Amino acid sequence: TTKIPKKQEPVRYQSTVGLSTDEIAEIVGRIEEVLASRRTGRPPLMSLAEQVEMLLLLLRRNLPQTVVADLYQVSQPTVSRVYRRLVPLFDEVLCLHEPFFVDVLANRETLVDGTDVPTGNRAGTKENYSGKRHRQGLNIQIAADLDGTLLAVSAPAPVPGARHDRRAISECGWEPLLDTTVWTADPGYQGTTATTPTKKPKNDELTDYQKTVNKTISGRRSAVERAIAHLKNWKILATGHRGRLTELPNIIRIVARLEFYRLGW
């Protein structure tokens, strides 16, 4: 007979699940407090710590559930049940770590850029197709400070991937708030109150002064691109959401809150 290997120890590597052991333990403790007041059924197959680590692994690495099931030596339906049970609990226990956009805008220059969350090509969602990126996705707006610290994510209000950033910043509701502060963005936001690089005139060249200013703005904008890169280390936002499309806005919000939590907000 084939010998069944012993169950592996829970994942403890920050580079794998995105959070440190202490941060994971804190989330487990918060979820235990929430569940303590609720009626529970039969004892679960996995400990709560293992379930939390499993969900973090799914969000951080975007592995197929069948692969995660093999890693934890459970069935794929068990992984699916854990995922659907813990997602709303994560949203609940991390909600206080999401800063209010109005508060983070005060007394600082803000950098804004848009990025897409790929969804894979799905029937009946042509409005999500981006001709620029040649794929379907949802557009989210990202705000960061000059140090590259994430300030805000336009979740749960992503817009179809076909939207230009100029329209997306308006549809997500940020534009009136940004109009009251100093903010910098790329040329896609021309027409707003943002400081943007000067586009090259048709059949003409930029002056040396304009080129210098553009270079300065581009150098400052690199900070928001770093913030986007760190956010998309949660690979479920970078490599394609496999679940129901209606669930994606909530996943974006939860991942954003995890990143705020990781950053110490």
Rank of each mutant, 00 (worst) to 15 (best):
Q8R: 12
Q8I: 10
Q14A: 15
Q14N: 10
S15Y: 05
V17L: 02
G18W: 02
L19Q: 05
D22H: 09
E23M: 13
I24C: 12
I27W: 00
V28H: 01
V28C: 10
V28R: 07
G29F: 03
I31F: 02
E33C: 09
V34T: 07
L35A: 10
T40S: 14
P43F: 10
P44G: 11
E50G: 09
L57W: 00
L59V: 08
R60G: 03
R61M: 03
N62K: 11
T66W: 01
V68A: 02
D70T: 10
L71E: 15
V74P: 02
V74R: 06
Y83N: 02
R85M: 05
R85V: 03
V87D: 00
L89N: 04
L89F: 04
V93E: 07
V93L: 10
L94A: 10
L94S: 07
E98Q: 14
P99K: 11
R108E: 15
D113H: 09
D113L: 06
D113V: 08
G114Y: 01
R122M: 04
T125C: 09
K126Q: 13
E127L: 12
E127K: 13
E127M: 11
Y129P: 08
R133G: 05
Q136F: 04
Q136T: 07
N139C: 06
N139Q: 05
Q141S: 11
A143W: 00
A143Y: 00
D145Y: 02
D145F: 04
D147Y: 11
T149V: 12
L150Q: 05
P158A: 10
R163C: 12
H164T: 11
H164V: 08
R167N: 10
I169M: 07
W174S: 06
P176Y: 04
L178G: 01
W183M: 06
A185E: 07
T192W: 01
T193D: 11
T195S: 06
K199P: 08
K202Q: 08
N203G: 08
E205K: 12
L206P: 01
D208M: 09
Y209E: 15
Q210D: 14
Q210C: 09
K211Q: 15
T212G: 09
K215M: 10
I217A: 10
S218P: 04
G219Q: 15
R226L: 09
L231Y: 08
K232S: 05
W234H: 13
A238G: 08
F260M: 03
R262K: 12
